[in-house]
């Protein structure tokens, strides 16, 4: 199972590579629950559909998506701010 890593200054990272739908979404919802408002979470993933479903899930519960960035052709990093 992925861990939430505190990178410092209210920035957290989570690596969910290897998980297909719906797990990146499930882990992200769960991770956000343990963050303080204003904290930032960077999620690394390799399941393409999650680049759409994770931002949608994050926004659904009132958080902000700061960006979805591709790293090469097979990985993405989604940056989210907890509200």
């Amino acid at each position: 199972m992925p861990d939430l890593i505190e990178a410092g200054d209210g920035v957290y990272e989570m690596d969910v590579r290897g998980y297909s739908c719906p797990y990146p979404e499930v882990f992200t919802r769960n991770a956000i629950d343990s963050l303080e408002p204003g904290d930032v979470l960077k999620i690394t993933l390799d399941n393409r559909p999650s680049t759409e479903t994770v931002p949608a899930a994050v926004e659904e519960v009132g958080n902000r998506v700061l960006g979805v960035e591709s790293r090469g052709s097979r990985e993405w990093v989604i940056e989210v701010e907890s509200r």
């Binding site: 199972m1 992925p2 861990d3 939430l4 890593i5 505190e6 990178a7 769960n30």
Partner: peptide, 15 residues
């Protein structure tokens, strides 16, 4: 490596 914070996932997720 920063500090690890464990997610509070139910055991089911792993299974």
């Amino acid at each position: 490596m920063g500090k690890r914070v464990e997610l509070t996932l139910s055991e089911d997720v792993e299974r």
